[in-house]
Deep mutational scan, measured.
Amino acid sequence: MQRVNMIMAESPGLITICLLGYLLSAECTVFLDHENANKILNRPKRYNSGKLEEFVQGNLERECMEEKCSFEEAREVFENTERTTEFWKQYVDGDQCESNPCLNGGSCKDDINSYECWCPFGFEGKNCELDVTCNIKNGRCEQFCKNSADNKVVCSCTEGYRLAENQKSCEPAVPFPCGRVSVSQTSKLTRAETVFPDVDYVNSTEAETILDNITQSTQSFNDFTRVVGGEDAKPGQFPWQVVLNGKVDAFCGGSIVNEKWIVTAAHCVETGVKITVVAGEHNIEETEHTEQKRNVIRIIPHHNYNAAINKYNHDIALLELDEPLVLNSYVTPICIADKEYTNIFLKFGSGYVSGWGRVFHKGRSALVLQYLRVPLVDRATCLRSTKFTIYNNMFCAGFHEGGRDSCQGDSGGPHVTEVEGTSFLTGIISWGEECAMKGKYGIYTKVSRYVNWIKEKTKLT
């Protein structure tokens, strides 16, 4: 034993070699072989497995989906700052455009905790909710729209109204504003409101030439003092309507412009014939205590009207009353817009006519005020429907199939267009061939041609 100890002390290297040989010859039971080890760690190889990531292109799944990435790591994937920024906006807080917040056709661009709407022409605001041009839906104005110097929408209202708090709607500024039905039992019968379409306001006024200088022999019209197929109006439903009495009662109609003036057809009036105007009328054979009678003290036909040349060209006249009318729910003026808007309103496509005229061709006159909704007829169809001249200051309205029309005794009465609950004068009943005849239409004086003249002559002093 002493000898062994001496050998170990003198030859430590020998001992180490012996131990190493023993270990190498022993069977290893701690580690699995290569094949079995792979069965336990069965993990798919990654895209760049075996390579240094710093030297390969980034992978979106590896960089940002398996674990949260930084902007720089995302930049490695896209290799483009702009594309990385677009991805980053949604990656950080989701897609803010998912709810489609942009209105009126706006395009949404996502941002971090926010979004941006790219608005089409005519709109602005956070969600493109603000109209900035009158060309689109009248700028959301209830009545009139004008573009300011910086191309912003400025709404306005006709006389007797003021802008509401929203700067879009119009509200009454006087007790009985024009064009409004205020009798409670008839307010439910107000005709369907007309909503502004998209309009090209630059070209809204037709490029028409008034044929002022045409000389033409007097034409022989049949029954051209021209509501057939209409309905009984309720008291106060058309408070701007008046009836004219002269040699015979209810020979023509008219509309209240203001307390002192009536507008009617020029062919209705004769110099030297006494005319009485009755406002607030409903049943011409009954006294309903809503009527107001006034005498006409002055007749002003349009300066281009000449019955000797043509009885229905420039067929418009103004009547001055001896005493002002007292405005109330049964006696209310009709609204008159400017030339541009009167023309736009007419193009809405349908209007209402009213009167006490004959209820059928050569038949009896109506006792109760009649009204009828009539569609506008395109000019080409209008011209083809008659052998008589249709001037540019006239328009056609009615039904091709016949059966409904204005008729004798309705002449001078109103053709009105309702705009968001307020009625505007767009025409004056003038003439036609018979009444409600198939293929024939009622012919009306186009008020847009005469609004400046009306307003100039009827100013209240």
Rank of each mutant, 00 (worst) to 15 (best):
Q2R: 15
Q2P: 12
Q2T: 06
Q2W: 15
R3G: 11
R3K: 09
V4Q: 09
N5G: 14
M6F: 13
M8D: 08
E10N: 15
S11K: 15
S11M: 13
P12M: 15
G13V: 13
I15H: 04
I15L: 09
I17M: 13
I17G: 02
L20P: 03
G21L: 14
E27G: 09
C28N: 03
C28K: 02
V30E: 11
F31L: 15
L32I: 12
D33K: 09
D33N: 07
D33M: 11
H34E: 07
N36T: 10
A37Q: 05
K39Y: 05
L41P: 15
R43Q: 15
K45W: 09
K45P: 14
K45V: 15
R46G: 15
R46W: 08
N48F: 04
S49G: 14
G50D: 14
K51C: 04
K51A: 12
L52A: 15
L52I: 15
L52F: 14
E53M: 07
E54H: 13
F55I: 12
G58M: 08
L60C: 03
E61Y: 15
R62N: 04
M65H: 15
E67P: 04
E67A: 05
K68S: 11
C69D: 04
S70D: 06
S70R: 15
F71N: 15
E72S: 15
E72P: 15
E73Q: 13
E73P: 15
R75P: 10
R75A: 15
F78G: 15
F78E: 15
E79G: 15
T81I: 07
E82Y: 05
T84M: 04
T84I: 04
T85E: 08
W88A: 15
K89G: 15
Q90C: 04
Y91F: 13
D95C: 03
D95V: 04
C97S: 01
C97V: 01
E98P: 02
E98S: 11
N100K: 06
P101W: 02
P101I: 03
G105D: 04
K109T: 09
I112P: 04
N113V: 05
N113S: 06
S114M: 04
C117D: 01
W118N: 15
P120A: 11
P120C: 02
F123D: 01
F123P: 01
E124M: 07
E124Q: 07
G125S: 02
K126Y: 10
C128P: 01
C128E: 02
C128H: 02
D131A: 05
C134V: 02
C134T: 02
N135R: 07
I136A: 08
K137H: 14
R140S: 03
R140D: 05
C141D: 00
C145N: 00
K146W: 07
S148K: 07
A149L: 09
A149M: 10
A149D: 14
A149Y: 09
D150K: 09
D150I: 09
V154W: 08
C155N: 00
S156D: 09
C157S: 00
C157L: 01
T158Y: 04
T158R: 01
E159A: 10
G160W: 02
R162Q: 08
R162C: 04
A164L: 06
E165C: 04
E165G: 10
S169W: 06
S169D: 08
C170N: 00
C170P: 02
C170M: 00
E171Y: 09
A173N: 08
A173V: 12
F176Y: 11
P177T: 03
P177W: 01
C178K: 01
C178Q: 02
C178W: 02
S182D: 07
V183Y: 10
V183G: 11
V183C: 04
S184E: 11
S184W: 08
Q185W: 12
T186S: 05
T186M: 12
S187T: 12
K188L: 07
K188N: 13
L189S: 11
T190A: 09
V195H: 13
F196L: 12
F196T: 09
Y201H: 10
Y201G: 14
Y201W: 10
V202Y: 13
A207R: 06
A207P: 11
E208F: 06
I210H: 09
I210C: 08
L211M: 13
D212Y: 11
D212V: 10
I214M: 08
T215W: 06
T218V: 09
T218H: 08
N222M: 11
D223G: 10
D223I: 10
F224E: 06
F224I: 10
F224L: 13
T225E: 10
R226A: 07
V227W: 11
V227F: 13
V227T: 13
G229D: 12
G229H: 07
G229A: 11
G229F: 14
G230T: 12
E231W: 11
D232A: 13
D232F: 09
A233I: 08
F238A: 04
P239Y: 01
Q241S: 06
V242P: 00
V242A: 04
L244V: 07
N245P: 03
N245A: 06
N245G: 06
G246W: 05
V248L: 12
V248I: 12
V248K: 13
D249R: 09
A250I: 07
F251N: 07
C252E: 00
G253R: 09
G254D: 00
S255V: 11
I256P: 00
V257G: 01
V257P: 00
V257L: 06
N258W: 01
N258I: 00
E259W: 03
I262T: 01
I262V: 12
A265T: 04
A266G: 04
H267I: 02
H267Y: 02
C268D: 00
V269D: 02
E270C: 08
E270Y: 05
G272R: 11
K274P: 11
I275M: 07
V278N: 04
A279K: 01
G280L: 02
E281A: 11
N283E: 06
I284P: 06
E285D: 12
E285G: 07
E285P: 10
T287G: 10
T290S: 11
K293V: 13
N295C: 04
I299R: 06
I299W: 06
P301Q: 11
H302F: 07
N304W: 08
N304H: 09
Y305I: 01
Y305D: 00
N306G: 03
N306I: 05
A308H: 09
A308R: 13
K311N: 05
K311G: 05
K311H: 06
H314M: 02
I316W: 00
A317F: 01
L318F: 00
L318T: 01
L319W: 02
L321S: 01
D322L: 02
E323R: 07
L325N: 00
L327V: 08
L327D: 01
N328C: 03
S329F: 05
S329K: 14
Y330K: 06
Y330F: 14
I334C: 02
C335D: 01
I336C: 02
I336N: 01
D338C: 04
Y341Q: 10
T342S: 14
N343G: 10
F345I: 07
F345Y: 13
S350T: 13
V353G: 02
V353E: 01
S354I: 12
S354T: 14
G357W: 07
V359N: 13
V359R: 13
H361N: 15
H361D: 13
H361Y: 13
G363L: 07
G363W: 05
A366V: 06
V368Q: 14
L369C: 03
L369M: 14
Y371Q: 14
L372I: 14
L372A: 14
V374P: 04
V374G: 01
P375R: 15
P375N: 14
L376W: 05
L376K: 06
D378M: 04
R379C: 07
T381E: 09
C382L: 03
R384W: 04
R384G: 11
R384Q: 14
R384V: 07
S385P: 03
S385Y: 14
T386Q: 10
T386S: 14
I390W: 08
I390Q: 09
Y391V: 07
N393P: 02
M394A: 08
F395V: 02
H400P: 14
R404G: 15
R404E: 06
C407D: 03
C407P: 05
S411M: 13
G412P: 12
G412A: 13
P414F: 10
T417E: 00
E418N: 13
T422Q: 03
T422I: 14
F424H: 02
L425F: 02
L425A: 01
T426K: 00
I429E: 12
W431D: 10
W431G: 11
W431F: 14
G432N: 14
G432W: 06
C435H: 04
A436Y: 08
M437V: 14
K438P: 14
G439H: 10
Y441Q: 02
Y444G: 02
K446L: 03
V447L: 08
R449W: 10
I454V: 07
K457P: 02
K457D: 02
K457R: 15
T458V: 06
T458S: 11
T461W: 08
